[in-house]
Structures are given as structure tokens and as C-alpha cells.
Amino acid sequence: MVFKKLLGALGVGGPTVDTVLTTPVVQPGGVLHGQVNLTGGTVETDISGITVTLVARVEIEHEDGESSSVRPFARFSVTPPLHLAPGEQRSIPFAFPVPYETPVTTIAGQRLTGMALGVRTEVEISGALDKGDSDPLDVEPLPVQRRLLDAFLALGFRFRSADLEAGHIRGTGQSLPFYQEIEFSAAPQYAHACNSVEVTFLATEHRVEVILEADKRGGIFGHGGGDVINHHTVEHSAADQDLTGLVDSWVRQAL
């Protein structure tokens, strides 16, 4: 996976940068590997530093509607200041940990509709920061996250959409400035009681917080409806188990 850009800080004759991801698919908490390839232009260049940044498209709610914005959520320095001679070529490898709360973009190779994550290379030349185009990044779920998602599907839930919401979920250990919501249409056995279910994963090194939000249907006069939010915790070791019964109990508790 490559993107190539003429660094605008120097314009014509400036150096170019190629960023190559050798692990274009990662898991939360995994390691992103790649290299930044520099080729000097027609003039000498002093580069103050190179940074690789993970970015995501995030939905922001306003009083009059909703908008989206590209937000950085992890930044890593690739190299200290360096001097690049005309025509000189340099390859700078990097390996950085991906935050455990990094949202999932694909499940078994299938991309989740609505998700957009990328890797952006930032090169600082003469005090000016040049931001390269984002290179897409795919994130597969952790084994226990995959087990939980499989459980929802086994119960008859159907994936509807996924997005990232700006803000924090109260009462959780959330560290990123946004959270992911994976929405499912209600399975037939729950359809009389709810319209849909949204799932949020907040993973750490040892466990995963699961926030389950059920859109309950109201009674005959509309009473008792609305969103119900429950919090659960699952250890990574649960990836060795069938979690269908556990998820079923969560849904019934919420309803």
C-alpha cells in the first residue's frame, strides 16, 4: 500500500515521499509496520522531522444536524531531523503500536459500511508541515470481539451500519476522543421489544468493555420506549468460548 507525494513545502524541485505499509491490516493493540521512502529533489533539503499519524472520519453532532471531520488519534515520530541531498534516497522503517481502542473496519475481509481509517505521513520542512494523503488502513477485530460479533449474527441480528461518534461514553475507561457504534437490526425473537441494537467495544490489554445500547419499542401508548444502555466486561480469554448464550442474556436484560 503506497502513496507518493511531492512535498509542497519546497514546490517544484522538492523531495518526494513514498509511505509503504507492510501490514495494511492490523488488529487493535497490534503493531503497524511500514517504511517511509524519501527521494531528494533538485535542491538540498533540511527535514525537521517525519511523523506517521493514524486518522479517522468522525461524526460530530450539532444542534442543527451532524457533520463529519477527519480526526488524528495516534501520532508517532519516524525520524529525528535529517539532511537530504539532491537525488539522495533514504528508506526509514517504522513499527508502532496501534491503540487498543482503534475501531474495527473489516470483519473476515468484509469492510464495514461507514468506516474510514487511514495513515497520514507528515513531513516538516523549514518549519512548514506538509500533510500527505491518507493511506487506507484496515482493522480486523480482536478474537474476543469477533466472537461477540459472531454471537450477534448467530442470534439472527443483521449488520446495519457502523460509524464513529465524537465524545466520551460516561462511566467507561474510554481514552480516545471518539467511540465506534456498530448497529444491528433486531433479530426476529427480539423484534417485538426493540428496533435495533448498537455495540461499542472499548478494549484494553486485558479485557474489553462492551457497551450495549438497545432501542426499545414503547408500549401500546408509547410508554417504556427509548434507549437502554448496559455495560459489560469480557476477558480476552473468552475468545475460546461460544458467547452466543452470553450475548442473548445481555439483550434480554436490556429489554
Rank of each mutant, 00 (worst) to 15 (best):
L10M: 14
P15V: 09
T16F: 07
L21N: 01
T23Q: 01
V25A: 11
V31L: 10
V31K: 08
G34W: 00
G40M: 12
G41K: 11
I47R: 09
S48K: 15
S48R: 13
G49T: 14
T53W: 04
V58Q: 03
E59G: 06
G65C: 06
R71C: 10
R71P: 03
F73G: 08
F73R: 08
L82C: 13
S91V: 14
P93G: 11
P97N: 03
T105M: 05
G109Q: 06
T113N: 14
M115D: 03
I125Q: 02
G127P: 02
P136F: 02
L137C: 05
L148S: 00
L149P: 01
G156T: 10
F159M: 08
F159Q: 06
A162P: 00
L164C: 03
E165A: 03
G167I: 13
F178V: 04
Q180V: 01
E181T: 02
A186N: 01
P188R: 10
A191F: 07
V197L: 07
T200Y: 00
L202N: 04
L202S: 04
R207V: 08
V208E: 06
V210C: 05
D215W: 08
F221S: 14
H223W: 12
H223L: 15
G224W: 08
G226D: 09
N230Q: 14
H232W: 09
E235L: 02
S237M: 11
R252W: 12
L255S: 10
L255A: 07
